[in-house]
Design a protein around this nucleic acid. Sequence first.
DNA 1: TCCAATAATGCTGGGATTGAGTATAAGGGA
DNA 2: TCCCTTATACTCAATCCCAGCATTATTGGA
Lengths: 338, 338
Amino acid sequence: MCHTGWLWHIADMKQSSITQPMLESPEAPDSVAALSAELIAVLVAVTDGEPRVLTLHQAAALPSGPFAATDRSLQASLRAWVERQTGHPLGYVEQLYTFADRDRTGAADGSCAGPVIGISYLGLTREARVSGYETSWQGWYRYFPWEDQRTGPDVTRTALTAGLHAWAEDAADKTERASRRQRVVLTFGTAQAGTEAWNEELVLQRYELLFEAGLVPEAGRPANDALAGTGMLHDHRRILATAIARLRAKIKYRPVVFELVPDDFTLLQLQRVFEAVAGRLLHKQNFRRLVEQQGLVEETGALATATGGRPAKLYRFKRSVLQERAISGTKLPLSRSR
Amino acid sequence: MCHTGWLWHIADMKQSSITQPMLESPEAPDSVAALSAELIAVLVAVTDGEPRVLTLHQAAALPSGPFAATDRSLQASLRAWVERQTGHPLGYVEQLYTFADRDRTGAADGSCAGPVIGISYLGLTREARVSGYETSWQGWYRYFPWEDQRTGPDVTRTALTAGLHAWAEDAADKTERASRRQRVVLTFGTAQAGTEAWNEELVLQRYELLFEAGLVPEAGRPANDALAGTGMLHDHRRILATAIARLRAKIKYRPVVFELVPDDFTLLQLQRVFEAVAGRLLHKQNFRRLVEQQGLVEETGALATATGGRPAKLYRFKRSVLQERAISGTKLPLSRSR
DNA sequence: TCCAATAATGCTGGGATTGAGTATAAGGGA
DNA sequence: TCCCTTATACTCAATCCCAGCATTATTGGA
């Protein structure tokens, strides 16, 4: 044995929840199987008001690669690779989650035999231009149609909520029914007029709920459904959900939006990117006020060639406050209306 | 090749920062070396007003074990193990960070040859009783004396800040000096009267700054210094710093404090635990108001046998709101004074 | 030339949140 | 009984934030 003597075994990597039931696990055999690790990247850019992710295999998989045990920093390598591919610097990289998948034991040629550890990353970039074959940028709402609430509670959400409530009522005993109902309401909100209560950060919870209710059948094969969204291979859609949730949370208290917009931008452009990521609309005046009073931007002096309407001032991100704000935090709260 | 064809290499797992310089990396050989993975746990309990972590090897290491590629959920196994050891349920488990360490290539017997991937976890529990040999609970401020700001800016912090400023002035060029100065002020605050500006969440940044400044010499061997704190083996102190930072952040917006207090508690007890974790004092009346109006607790009806003073009402955590709040969030802001 | 549409930008009022202080109640011990 | 300690209730002002309203600047057409 290498270390201190007690074994842990890994298989499933469900995001921890306090209420998660505790499972008893029997002792496992004291063998260490051959391991392999895989790195999975969620690369995000916002183009034409749509958040996009880089995909492979006919939009059914995220870029991933085996982890080669050599000597460079992972993040540095990730950056270098992306920069070569897209021609733009990768502004921000963040580790998402590590999970183990005992069902996926590598390719057929045996070179990747044994269980796979997956380490997923979120990366932000600017321009969506790639040269690879089979590689393309896809709008992320293609995989999660219900996550785009910029036009208010739409057909998708309504239909899904209905389906979920049916599933809830379908439960065996009363307690389970109540629990399911509560989960549905908490994650999808009551689509009643006014109340809203849509929390844009619960991307993963919603996906898992739909999965549990059998509304996003993703048993290995990617399906395509206008309601349930496009499926992905393996658990890539789950990883994407994690990435979206993380980014939606982060964008509110760290100045990462600027990694997604051009060097010079108008405040409305910035707002649109923000809204695209968050999947909901913002109050324009309040957004401007916040951005301005946070001191994160400065005017370039130039004006944008208007797209119809009064020309807007162009701003640029104050790189000088980056270090400061990266530590002390921003604060760009989401409010409802437009 | 197993996957899509481009390689990533992993070595160092520095927490991503936007300002981190981008390193160019050369292509790596197309070989997949033997891998091994290690799980590292930061188990936290609060006893006698002190946050403690479970340690091994004369308080110089965190519990860790090789990852055996078998079939159970890691979290379930972790829970089971801790519950056996401590006799108390592990309330909350959360993944911290995954890193790769090419310098640490397992034990001498070759069973763990190849580079090591480390997956670290944070776990919260209640009582600090262990039966193992070499195993003990240690107050976490032993490793980070400067992180305990409950008594205001103390000698430790003052001394370290002085040392850091000396280091800052020691830089070669002007830009670097300014940058260092800024980092010192941002992470350690200006210890001026009143201004404070201590951000308790910057545990990792402070540790890294001290490391960089050579004030916490931790070249593999655990040292013991009243100022720099006790060292740990490998990068365990770094992992601990990550855990503290994560917990300090989480405790403010998720109801995880309750995992660290007994079933029945007074509001002051709850506050003390909160303060112990956060390393700073809270305004008592405001803390009560928040806890109460959040609807997270309910009175048991009983009173605490006073520890001197008017008897306090006993409260219990409303488990019923757990699922709800685990999703929708709490909000227990930290304010300064007592 | 005037008007309508589209944006940008400035300003204001009310409600909620928060930081911090004051006052009162209820115990124990000298 | 007085005094010390802690619990608990209440108040007040500053601030923040949401959500409107109003005004200004352009473009494109009637």
